[in-house]
Each structure stands twice: as structure tokens, then as C-alpha cells.
């Protein structure tokens, strides 16, 4: 995303050049690298939130109505011990009402049914997997408990994927730097080709290497700065848009902007690599004996 402007300009230039397949390959690889990095970043963010959601997954228990008092007092004890955030208990009447979408059931008919139907409780233990598992173990052993449901295995899988993703992200960051360098290199190389005669004549009439290097490096430097600024601006816009879209009920997912220190680091990296890329592109010019 941070190089959209440069990519477009370069693509337009490539369209006008022949015999530049190798540069086209670099161009394609760069786009792939950028896409992969974007996809990985999105996945990483997605996994983070998925973990939060699943960690916040409710423990659903059902019990026989006969044991209602015992289970309720047990839940009260557990609430303090395991820092349970929320316990929502649904009586059979309430559960039926939810199932029947608020319709009132006839009292006589329902009374028998209520005796058969179990009580349900939803226990939320935000981002504390171990507590949730401990509660599960305790409640399982209690008489009258019919079902205790928790899907902790999902959390573990996501955790392992997430930890592996960090390595992928580090590699991706380097790929991103490489891609920006390659992009600036090929961009400067095409620029050099398009200005080959001018550069040749400049050398013929006595231009020093510095005289030729400065405009090219400056262009790499400025394109790095502008592209990074453009990329960060776009990211900010997208973050705002996604928050507007996702940070509403019932999803409540808040996406945070990258910290400013990361932004500075990435910008500096891209600018540095851009300058190196433009210098490498122009380097062969100084080896010729003009």
C-alpha cells in the first residue's frame, strides 16, 4: 500500500519500455511481496481479535431445576474466587421466552414443562483461559449438572498460529524493505535508461559523479518519504473506516493504528532502502569509461 503511487508510475513507465522483462519480474515480485505482507498483517490482526473473542467465550452450563439452589450458591462462590466477569442465569421460563421470541406461554401448560427443562447459565471469564478451565472442572463434578461446554482447544490452536505468525511477520517486514529497495532500484534504473543520453552527455561535458548522483538519490529519498506518508495516511483512513464498520454492536472489534515509533522505524527503513536502491541503479554508469 505504501508504494501504490510509485508502483503506478513505474507500471506506466514499464509499459513504454521494451526488453525489460527482468524488471517486470521484479515489479511483479514486489507486488506479490506487498500483497503477502498485507494479507499476513490482516491475518495477524484478525487472529488477535479472534483470540480475544474466543478467550471471552462463554462457559455454558445447564443443570437440573431440582438442584437450582445448590448450583447458584456454588456459582456465587466461584465468582469471587475465579474473577468471573459475568454470570447470566436463564430460568426455563426465560429460556423458552427467548426461544419463542418473547411470546407469553400459557401458565398451566408451561408449569409442567418448566420442571422438565433445565436452568442455563452463561459464564464470561474475559481473557482468562485457565480460570475458565478450572471452573469447568469444578462444575463437572457437581450433582445435577447436565452439560458444561467450553471450546478451549480453539484458543490453543490460535495461540500457536499467532506465535508462528510473528516469525512470518519479521520475514515479511524484511521482504517489505527488500521490495521497496527493489522497487526504487527498478524505478531509478528505468529513469536512468530514459535519461541515458542526457547522462551520457553530462559525463561528456564534465559533470562530476556527485552532480549526477544527487538528483537521483534525492528522487529516491523523496519518493520514500512521500510513499511512506501516503501509505501511513491510507492506513489511518482504513483503520478509521474499519473501526466505523466493526466497532459497533454486535462485533465490537477495535482496530488500533500502528504505534508512532513503528511508523518512524518503517519510514526510515523505506527511505534508507530507497536511497540505496537508486544508488545501485545508477552505479553502472560510473564504471563506463565515458
Amino acid at each position: 500500500m505504501s508504494y501504490t503511487a510509485c508502483l503506478f508510475e513505474q507500471f506506466m513507465m514499464l509499459m513504454n519500455q521494451k526488453k525489460l522483462q527482468h524488471l517486470f519480474l521484479i515489479f511483479v515480485l514486489t507486488i506479490i511481496c506487498l500483497l503477502v505482507s498485507i494479507i499476513l498483517l490482516i491475518h495477524y490482526n484478525g487472529l488477535n481479535y479472534l483470540k480475544k473473542i474466543t478467550a471471552n467465550e462463554t462457559l455454558i452450563i445447564t443443570w437440573d431445576s431440582k438442584y437450582n439452589k445448590e448450583i447458584k450458591s456454588e456459582l456465587d462462590k466461584l465468582k469471587d474466587k475465579y474473577k468471573i466477569q459475568q454470570i447470566k442465569i436463564f430460568s426455563p421460563q426465560k429460556a423458552l421466552s427467548i426461544l419463542m421470541k418473547g411470546e407469553q406461554l400459557p401458565k398451566n401448560d408451561s408449569s409442567k414443562m418448566y420442571q422438565i427443562l433445565p436452568y442455563t447459565a452463561i459464564i464470561s471469564c474475559r481473557e482468562n483461559k485457565n480460570n475458565l478451565l478450572a471452573i469447568k472442572d469444578i462444575l463437572k463434578k457437581k450433582p445435577g449438572i447436565k452439560r458444561v461446554i467450553i471450546d478451549a482447544s480453539k484458543i490453543e490452536i490460535i495461540d500457536s498460529i499467532r506465535s508462528n505468525y510473528i516469525y512470518f511477520l519479521i520475514i515479511t517486514l524484511f521482504l517489505l524493505f527488500f521490495a521497496s529497495g527493489a522497487l526504487t532500484f527498478s524505478y531509478s534504473y528505468i529513469l536512468k535508461l530514459s535519461r541515458a543520453k542526457e547522462l551520457y552527455i553530462l559525463k561528456l561535458v564534465g559533470a562530476s559523479n556527485t552532480f549526477i548522483i544527487i538528483p537521483f538519490t534525492l528522487k529516491g529519498f523523496l519518493s520514500g518519504i512521500l510513499a511512506s506518508a501516503f501509505g501511513l495516511f491510507m492506513t489511518k483512513i482504513i483503520v478509521l473506516y474499519l473501526n466505523k464498520l466493526l466497532n459497533t454492536p454486535p462485533i465490537w472489534i477495535k482496530i488500533d493504528m500502528i504505534p508512532i515509533s513503528y511508523c518512524v522505524f518503517i519510514t526510515m527503513g523505506i527511505v534508507f532502502i530507497s536511497c540505496i536502491g537508486s544508488l545501485l541503479a545508477i552505479n553502472p554508469l560510473f564504471k563506463k569509461g565515458v
Binding site: 543520453k197 542526457e198 559525463k203 559533470a207 562530476s208 559523479n209 552532480f211
Partner: peptide, 29 residues
């Protein structure tokens, strides 16, 4: 080279001037 060419200049048969530059710009290089 940049010091040498201040001392020695060359006129070419095929001119070696930049077509998209104006006369003034070419002389200015």
C-alpha cells in the same frame, strides 16, 4: 573526468546535443 573536461572539450560530428533541450539549455549544461 570532471576536472579534465573543464580543460578539454569536444565537438562531435553528430553534435551530441539534447533534442528536447532548448539552445540555451544545451549551452548551459
Amino acid at each position: 573526468i570532471h576536472l579534465f573536461r573543464r580543460c578539454v572539450q569536444m565537438i562531435y560530428q553528430d553534435f551530441e546535443i539534447l533534442d528536447d533541450y532548448s539552445v540555451k539549455q544545451n549551452i548551459e549544461i
